[in-house]
Amino acid sequence: MLELKNVSAGYGTFQALFDVSLEVRAGEAVAVIGPNGAGKTSLLRVISKVIDLNGGEIAMEGVSLNDVPAHKIIEMGIAHVPEHRRLFPRLTVEENLKMGGFIASARSHFDERLAYVYELFPRMKERRHQLAGTMSGGEQQMCAIGRGLMSGPKLLLLDEPSAGLAPVIVQQVFDLVRRIREEGYTVLIVEQNIQQVLKVVDRAYLLEVGQIKMSGSSRELLENDDVRRAYIGL
């Protein structure tokens, strides 16, 4: 579904990604794991074209994204749930969801998708008129994922959904991710919480200093001695 070939990208003169190639097949959940500063967020940002692509190819369902501007990416069926959730704090939950379904093709489906998101996250229905900035971190994450679903995407990009949340909430967030999977969405997730994320995805890539160091099924990575020693602390 999504294919990256030899992608290089960065911010100004700083290069964050070197020659990254990866693939996400339809129906899969794939994780990109790695330490802080490895370029995981940059990877999602270049797919969304929020940062410039300096070299390589990105394609969604065989269509090149190289010349697609950032605000058209969502129309290609890719929804990006950004790092730190980035909800609009002074809009209500429902208004945030409405922004998720801003694009023209999503507007006619607003009611049905809203009902779907509320069914998926009943808590959001309770809080529909509350300002997003006043909710707890876990609730905000639900809202952010819900906002991502409002455009009816084929592929969901999740950037560190567990970051900055209390341990109990982290567990809930991974349950959320699992539910999204079960709903049939294709997911590309970036995480630092490696042990947890590897339990919910099929495959994973290990990113270090902007380069893919290893890839394989979750089981392979979980059992790899280097990964265990460096990231899981066993």
């Binding site: 929020v50 990416i73 609009f88 809009l91 998720g100 801003f102 507007r107």
Partner: peptide, 23 residues
């Protein structure tokens, strides 16, 4: 309206707008 909501949203977080499909 969608446009009106986007106008309010952009004053709160400009940089996330492209991810909503808004230029």
């Amino acid at each position: 309206t969608y446009l009106g909501t986007a106008i309010r949203a952009i004053s709160q977080d400009r940089d996330v707008m492209p991810l909503m499909g808004v230029s």
